[in-house]
Design a protein around this nucleic acid. Structure first.
Lengths: 362, 362
DNA sequence: TTGTATGCGTTATCAA
DNA sequence: TTGATAACGCATACAA
C-alpha cells in the first residue's frame, strides 16, 4: 500500500492522539512537552514518514529559506563555478538555491528577477547584463530583499563580489609593454552585454595609452565565429601589425592559438597571447597559456557569505575585490625584432586551400 | 517613501474597493468580471506594484511550480551544461529550477533529495552516485513525484536521459583495435562514485576481450593527482607497455597528453589518447583530441521535456539513449611498429630533474 | 457579476 | 504541559 501522497502535521497529531500544536512543539523542540507525548509523536511521525512542508512554513514565517541566483549562463564554466561556490557556502545552512539564467538577455534578466521575487526568495545573488538598469532588481531592493552581485563592479545599495577587471587588464598591458610589444589587440565576445569585457578593454586601453603604446585594436567576435578558427584566422590576418593579443577569456585565447597555427604563425614567436580566467586546461597545453587567474568559486562563496549575514539581519558590507594573479605561460614573449612580414609565413606555410578559404571569408 | 514590504491581493482588493475573490478573478482572468471593476483592480495592482506570492499559490494549489535538480557538481562542465539544458527547456513554462549538488557524496545526495521533496518540488531531475539505492528518491517516487534521471542507465520507475556509455566505450576499443593497438589503458577519476566511468570501463573491457586484446589496464587517478601532470607522467611511465589510453573525460585526456610530453613521448606516435565528452577546446588543441562527442545540453533538455509531460499528467516514458559520435583527432594513430623502448625517449629526452621527480613520486 | 467563507500546512498566541 | 484558534496569501465553492 502506497503511503499517503501528503502527510501533514495534522496526520501526525491525529495518530499520536494529541493536538497539532503539541505535535509541532515536539517536532520542532520548541516549547515544553512531556516525555510521553514526545515518544508518541516521534513514533507517529516516523511511521507516517512525515516531513515538514517548507511551503506551509514559508507562508507562516514569511521566510522561504530560498536564495535566488541569476547568471547569464551555466554553459560558461566561470559562472557555473561561481554558482557552485554559492552552493558550497549554502551547504549546512537551511537555504536552498533557486536558479535562473538569462542567456545574456537584458529583458530575460529582468523577468527572471521578477519571478524570483514572486517566489519570495530571502536573498538574491545575481550577475546580469545591467544590474543598475533593472527595474525588478530595484523593486527587490525596495522590498528589502538583500542582494549581492557577482562579477560586477560595485554599485551602491548592493554588495559585490568581483575581481578588478580594469586593474587586471592594466597588468596585461604592462606585461605586453615590458616584453616590448606596441601594437596589440583586444579580443572579446559580447562587449555589449558584458561589463566585464568592457572593463577589461578599458583597463587595457588605458594602460596602453599610459605607456605610450598605440591604442589597442578592438576585435569583437560573434558567438558563432568563436567556434570557427578559420574565421578568427581571417580576422587575425587582417591585422598583420599586431604582435600581441589580449583575449577576454581563456577559450578565446586558445582559439587565437589555433587560428595562428592555421596561418602558419608560431605562438609566441609571431604572436603573443594572454587570456583571462585561468582555467585549469590552460596549464596542460603544449604551449601553456599565459593568463589572468581568477577565482570564480571564491567569488560565489563570498557573495553567499555576505548574503547570509545580510539575511540574518546583518548589514551587507562591501568587501575589497578578490585578488587576481598573472599566470606566466609560454604564449607570451618578446615580439620578433624585425618586421613580421619576413620569415613568419615561412615557418609553416598555410595550405593553399586554407588561404583560399580565408580570403573568401575575410 | 518605500513601498510596503509585502503587498497582497488583499491590499489590491481594498484599494480597488472590491472583494478579494473579485480581485483574484480579475488578476487571473478566471471567472466573470465587469469592465469597470477590472479597470479599478488592474490600476490598483499597478499602483501598488502587486505581484502574486508563489508561496500562497503553492499552498492553495499544492503545486509549487518548481523542479528540483540534483547533480554531483556544477564545477564539472558536463553537468553544468546539462543543467543549462534543463533551464533552457523550462524557459517559457512557469517552472523554476531548485538546484542542489552533492559533490559526489552518497549521503549528501540523499539529504538533498529529502530537502527538495520537503520544498514540495513538482518534479525531480537528478544525477547521483547511486539513484537505485537512495531511500529519499524512493520515497519521492512513492509520493508520486515524477522524476527523471540524467547520465544514468535506465532504472525501472524513472525515465532516464543518457548516452550509452558501454557502447561508446566499445566504439573506442574498436578504433584502438583497428589501429593495431593491443595493450591499452583506461584512465578514470572517481570509479566508485560514477556509474558512467564504470560503464565506460565495462564496455571498453568487454570489447577489448571480444577482439582478443589483453585486458585494459585500469588506472584510477585521485582528484588531486588529476591536476598534477608529473604524477600522471610517473604513472604512465610505470605502464611502458601501453600504446593507447582511453580517458574517461577530455580533461584527463588532455592531461595525458601533457604527461606524455613531460616524458618526452610524442602523441600519437608513442601513445594514442582518446577522451570522452567532446568538449569544444579539444578541437582547438595543437594536436586535436580524438574523443567521443556527447550532448549534455540535449540531455538536460530531454530530461526536462519528459518531466514536463509527466508533470502535466502524462506518463514518463523512456526514450532511447542520446546519440554519441566518435570525433576523429590527431591523438589517435597506429602504434609504432617496433618495441617502444627504442627511439621513443630520443625524440625529446625528458630533463634529468624531471626524471628524478618521477622516480621519487612513482 | 460580486463577496464571504473555507482550506491549504505551519507556527504562535493564549487560555485552560 | 496541552490544545483550540488565528494568521500567513491565495483560489474557489457557494451564496447573494
Amino acid at each position: 500500500m502506497p503511503p499517503k501522497a501528503k502527510v501533514t502535521i495534522k496526520d501526525v497529531a491525529l495518530k499520536a492522539g494529541c493536538g497539532i500544536a503539541t505535535a509541532s512543539r515536539v517536532l520542532n523542540n520548541s516549547g515544553p512537552t512531556s516525555a510521553e507525548v514526545r515518544e508518541r509523536v516521534n513514533r507517529a511521525a516516523l511511521d507516517l514518514g512525515f516531513s515538514f512542508s517548507a511551503i506551509g512554513r514559508a507562508l507562516q514565517s514569511s521566510k522561504s529559506m530560498t536564495v535566488g541566483c541569476l547568471v547569464p549562463s551555466l554553459a560558461n564554466p566561470v559562472f557555473a563555478e561561481a554558482v557552485q561556490g554559492v552552493q558550497n557556502e549554502l551547504v549546512g545552512t537551511n537555504y536552498q538555491l533557486l536558479i535562473s539564467s538569462s542567456n545574456y538577455d537584458d529583458k530575460a534578466d529582468d523577468a527572471a528577477i521578477s519571478t524570483l521575487v514572486s517566489k519570495e526568495v530571502d536573498g538574491l545573488i545575481v550577475t546580469m547584463v545591467a544590474p543598475e538598469r533593472s527595474p525588478a532588481l530595484k523593486l527587490a531592493h525596495q522590498r528589502g530583499i538583500p542582494a549581492s552581485l557577482m562579477f560586477h563592479d560595485p554599485i551602491k545599495g548592493f554588495a559585490t563580489s568581483y575581481v578588478d577587471n580594469f586593474e587586471a587588464a592594466r597588468d596585461v598591458a604592462q606585461r605586453f609593454s615590458e616584453c616590448g610589444h606596441r601594437r596589440t589587440g583586444f579580443l572579446a565576445l559580447r562587449l555589449a552585454t558584458s561589463d566585464r569585457s568592457r572593463n577589461r578593454y578599458a583597463g587595457f586601453h588605458a594602460e596602453c595609452r599610459a605607456r605610450g603604446m598605440p591604442d589597442p585594436a578592438l576585435i569583437e567576435l560573434s558567438e558563432t565565429d568563436a567556434n570557427r578558427p578559420e574565421k578568427l584566422a581571417a580576422i587575425l590576418a587582417a591585422h598583420p601589425d599586431l604582435t600581441a593579443i589580449f583575449a577576454s577569456n581563456d577559450f578565446l585565447a586558445i582559439a587565437v592559438q589555433k587560428a595562428a597555427r592555421l596561418l602558419g604563425w608560431i605562438v609566441p614567436r609571431d604572436l603573443s597571447v594572454v587570456g583571462f580566467d585561468g582555467i585549469e586546461i590552460g596549464k596542460l597545453l603544449d604551449v601553456p597559456l599565459a593568463t589572468i587567474e581568477t577565482m570564480p568559486e571564491k567569488m560565489g562563496r563570498q557573495a553567499a557569505k555576505s548574503l547570509l549575514t545580510a539575511m540574518q539581519g546583518g548589514v551587507l558590507e562591501q568587501l575589497p575585490p578578490l585578488p587576481f594573479r598573472f599566470r606566466a605561460g609560454a604564449t607570451l614573449a618578446a615580439p620578433r625584432a624585425k618586421s613580421r612580414d619576413d620569415g613568419r609565413v615561412a615557418a609553416q606555410p598555410p595550405s593553399v586551400p586554407l588561404i583560399k578559404t580565408i580570403l573568401k571569408q575575410g
